Amino acid sequence: MVEPDLYDLMRSHIPEDHHSDFRMAIRDGLRLRHAGMGEEVIGYFGGLPELPEGVEWPGDGKAHYEHVASIDLAKLPALDLNLPESGRISVFGDTDGWAGAFRYFPEGLVLQEAGLPADLESDDRVFTRAEMTCAVVPTIPSTSWLEMHLLDADDEDKVFEQLDAFGDKFFTHSWSWHQLGGWANEIQGDRDLGLLPGSAAAQHFYPDGLPSGRVLLAQFDTDGKIGMGWGDFGTLYCFIEPGRLAARDFADVEVYWECH
């Protein structure tokens, strides 16, 4: 089940008196996928990035990172992330390590296709280029977050079992789950702050103030069609501190990957 009917699942698995809270926790994200014939192209996966003159291809000083994706912000639907309305974001990842890089280039900069660094060419560390499109989808917190914030202490065991079954069905997918914004689909951790300061959901679930943490900018899954892989069927994540996001300051985006 790739994109289950979220509300049908809610009605069949979550007690009715919790529906209002559950709906409040939902955040829209953009599912990023390979573009088909006639679909609007918003960017591309893999291939070579386009960089401004004088900007180096990111790396760790010892080797360069693979180019993961580049996205034209002017072509995106509105999201609660309040990203810039124009410009380009480019994401890079290190399949030999655990790191990566996130770059934002404002509109007006002249971008040109970068030459492939020798180390990436010699190691054949280049993802195949594929045009990208997107669709708005509902995203939800992890099952553990839902259990903590949605259910009551006196709920019966069967309610917890229903919620676990709900999570299993929702997060089951049969192709790569690339995403911009929304809740992260984390593999190992449960680090995603998820909710944005000032939102109705943040005020409801955290009346005393949001805890510290970061929210998801983007995630890129293992994608066999273009040779993209992160360890054992892993995912690359880009997280940002909410205050920096509000200021549109992308200088301290945390990029890393997890795997099974």
Rank of each mutant, 00 (worst) to 15 (best):
V136G: 01
V136C: 01
V137C: 12
V137R: 08
V137W: 01
P138D: 04
P138F: 14
P138S: 10
P138L: 13
T139H: 02
T139G: 10
T139R: 11
T139V: 05
T139C: 07
T139I: 09
I140H: 03
I140S: 03
P141W: 15
P141D: 10
P141V: 12
P141C: 08
P141R: 08
P141S: 13
P141M: 10
P141T: 11
S142K: 05
S142T: 13
S142F: 06
S142M: 11
T143W: 00
T143D: 09
T143E: 13
T143V: 15
T143A: 11
T143L: 02
S144C: 09
S144R: 12
S144H: 14
S144F: 12
S144P: 07
S144V: 07
W145H: 11
W145C: 07
W145P: 05
W145E: 12
L146G: 05
L146Y: 12
L146C: 14
L146E: 09
E147P: 03
E147W: 10
M148Q: 13
M148H: 14
M148L: 12
M148T: 10
M148R: 15
M148P: 00
M148E: 15
M148G: 05
M148N: 13
M148S: 15
H149I: 09
H149K: 15
H149C: 10
H149S: 12
H149E: 07
L150W: 03
L150C: 10
L150D: 09
L150K: 05
L150R: 03
L151Q: 02
L151E: 02
L151G: 04
L151V: 04
L151F: 09
L151C: 14
D152Q: 14
D152A: 15
D152E: 15
D152R: 15
D152F: 13
D152Y: 12
D152S: 14
A153T: 14
A153V: 14
A153P: 01
A153Q: 04
A153N: 04
D154R: 13
D154M: 04
D154Y: 03
D154L: 08
D154F: 03
D155Y: 06
D155T: 00
D155R: 12
D155W: 05
D155M: 09
E156G: 08
E156Q: 14
E156T: 02
E156C: 02
E156Y: 07
D157Q: 04
D157V: 13
D157H: 06
D157Y: 08
K158H: 12
K158S: 08
K158C: 02
K158Q: 11
K158L: 03
V159K: 03
V159C: 06
V159S: 11
V159F: 01
V159E: 09
F160G: 01
F160P: 01
F160S: 01
F160W: 03
F160R: 07
F160C: 01
E161T: 10
E161W: 04
E161A: 03
E161L: 11
Q162A: 05
Q162G: 07
Q162E: 13
Q162L: 02
Q162S: 10
Q162T: 01
L163H: 05
L163D: 00
L163F: 07
L163W: 07
L163I: 06
D164H: 04
D164T: 04
D164A: 07
D164R: 05
D164L: 02
D164N: 06
A165I: 00
A165N: 08
A165Q: 11
A165G: 09
F166D: 08
F166A: 07
F166Y: 10
F166R: 02
F166W: 12
F166Q: 06
F166P: 13
F166E: 08
